[in-house]
Design a protein around this nucleic acid. Structure first.
Lengths: 204, 204
DNA sequence: CCGGCCGTGATCATTCACCTCGACGCGGAC
DNA sequence: GTCCGCGTCGAGGTGAATGATCACGGCCGG
């Protein structure tokens, strides 16, 4: 891919910035106005140059038909709401206060498109044996758990992270920390989500 | 936010799908054609309804002036290239084979916009004490390490993950695993990146 | 009976990409 | 040097793409 000129870099930056802030790609006239060109031709030429260098794609004749290749190549982005640490009543998935958002691509998340997804901040260290630490962000998928999955389960009105194990046809919840009781009886087991991804942010 | 009709959901899905695949929002006529409407008005009405319900934003008079609010609210997405496990010669950041891509928002990544970023797949368990396991994906930022940071360093032509510690004004690399030598002398220390985020994908 | 939803059909007014012709500077090729 | 390509910009014009509007009708729940 050929290198971009300073000017072309500026134009590309403008396009990307506009798309991020207003959601739409600027037209040739808007580019013209932004850079103070007296003619559209200047803007069009820059677009053509960017297209030839492969950083954008265009569709002849169509309005605002500019697509930035780097965002085009990207996998679908999943927006995961963070429901905090306490998840009482989550079974209904309602009235949950959003405490933020994580966005990552579906491939990295390993999540089947279409299923309900949410995230929780890990509190405590009952799963430290599985490499899940306090403060980690856990992305969970709402689906039926399989044996061996790490799940967020509602026990005594509180959500905790445990490993879901089925032995002799009976489901158990297992904490991965020697200081915790290894097996918990699981009557009225409510699994709120199955762990799909873990995200840990290091010092800022 | 008012609930969407089935039809409105379909229209929104079409818009999002088009934007993802071609990079641009469909025009009213394209929406019309896709759904087999005999009139543009049908398409326009749906857009108006979607706008009133707050899921899209439009700008009067402008072409393809539709912005999906959910993607608009989103933080800036960072595209991180995965450079694999072996990173010989990475100091130049050149000729690196892309083995994929991870995309996540800058806020979750905790990365200062503008710095060079890349990712590596963790091999071995020398950092298991820090909760970093084999197979984890580590996002690294190219910057000067501070004491206590986890860094990817080039030692004997191979990249390994270690904790960077400065004691008595002298830098050391420390493995977080009792089976490994605790402190490594660090002459000619090349730090390729400072760990910013960890991503672990669970069973698929 | 009204308002929201879902359409058809035709027309109008802009927005917008594209084209032609021309200009200037710069660096490499001949 | 001289020519050529490329980047960058100006002036003006054309036709297609596109959003917007008006008029009309049907369906449904409150």
């Amino acid at each position: 891919m050929a290198k971009l000129t300073d000017r072309q870099q500026q134009v590309l930056a403008f396009i990307e910035q506009e798309q991020a802030s207003s959601g739409m790609v600027p037209s040739t006239r808007e580019i013209q106005a932004h850079f103070g060109f007296a003619s559209q031709t200047a803007a069009i030429n820059h677009l053509r140059a960017l297209e030839k260098k492969g950083v954008i794609q265009r569709q002849a004749g169509k309005a605002r038909a500019v697509a930035v290749v780097s965002t085009l190549r990207r996998e679908t982005i999943l927006d995961v709401p963070i429901y905090g640490q306490i998840a009482a009543g989550m079974a209904e998935m309602q009235d949950q206060e959003d405490e933020g958002m994580v966005s990552l691509d579906v491939a990295s998340a390993g999540i089947s498109k279409g299923s309900k997804v949410f995230a929780l901040k890990v509190r405590g260290d009952s799963m430290i044996g599985a490499g899940i630490h306090e403060g980690d962000l856990v992305v969970l998928e709402h689906r039926e758990p399989r044996s061996g999955d790490v799940v967020a389960a509602l026990i005594d009105g509180e959500t905790t992270l445990k490993r879901f194990v089925v032995t002799h046809g009976r489901p158990y919840l297992k904490a991965e920390n020697p200081e915790f009781p290894n097996l918990l009886p699981t009557r009225e087991l409510i699994v709120q989500g199955v762990m799909a991804t873990l995200i840990r942010k290091f010092r800022k």
